[in-house]
Computed example of a mutant assay.
Amino acid sequence: MSNDPNNPCLFCRPEKKADWLIAENELAMLWADSNAVSEGHCLALPQRHVGDFFELTPEELLAINELLQQRRAELLQKDPTIDGFNVGINVGKAAGQSIFHVHVHLIPRRFGDHPNPQGGVRHVIHGKGHYPQPKK
C-alpha cells in the first residue's frame, strides 16, 4: 500500500483496508468486493501500489495466486452451492479498469445465476459471449 497521503487510490486507504481485508501476506491482500456480483466475490491485489497487471513482479504474482487459491478452497469448503469461478483482471481504461491499482476478481458462480453462462469472460465484448458448440 502507498504511504503517500495524497494518493487518491481507494485500495491504498488504510481505513478501507481495515473494512474489507479478508487475508494478506507479505506482498498481497485479499479484500471483499464492496460491489460484489455474487456471494463470496473478492479481490486479490498487491500491497504495492501498481496500476498495470503486467508491471507486477513474479513474486507479487505468486503472492496474489496464493491468496486466490487459499480463498477458493475456503469458499468451496464453507459453501456447497458454488459450482465454478470466474477469475478476471481489467487492464486499462478500455478494458474496464476503473481503479488503477491492480486487482484480480475471484467470482464464485452457481448453476442458475445466469440464464446462459456459456462464454464466461467473453461477454466483456457485447455479442461475443455465445459461440457455436463444436459438433460431437
Rank of each mutant, 00 (worst) to 15 (best):
D4P: 07
P5V: 03
N6D: 14
N7F: 07
P8K: 06
F11A: 09
F11D: 09
P14M: 11
P14T: 06
P14C: 09
K16L: 15
W20T: 11
L21S: 00
I22W: 12
A23L: 07
A23Y: 04
E24V: 02
E24C: 01
A28F: 05
W31G: 04
A32L: 15
D33S: 14
S34I: 15
S34W: 14
S34H: 13
V37R: 12
S38V: 04
H41D: 08
H41V: 01
P46A: 08
P46R: 05
P46L: 04
H49C: 00
G51P: 10
E55R: 14
L61M: 11
L62Q: 15
L62I: 13
A63R: 01
A63P: 01
N65V: 07
N65A: 13
L67E: 04
L67N: 07
Q69G: 12
Q70V: 04
Q70L: 12
R72G: 08
A73N: 15
A73E: 15
A73C: 06
E74Y: 00
L76M: 11
K78F: 04
T81S: 15
D83T: 14
F85V: 08
V87Q: 08
N90D: 11
K93T: 11
A94S: 11
G96N: 06
Q97W: 01
S98N: 12
I99D: 11
F100S: 00
V102T: 12
V104C: 12
H105Q: 02
H105N: 05
I107Y: 03
P108D: 03
R109L: 04
R110P: 11
R110K: 13
G112Q: 03
G112R: 02
D113Y: 08
H114K: 14
H114C: 12
H123V: 02
I125K: 03
G127A: 00
K128T: 03
Y131I: 01
P132V: 02
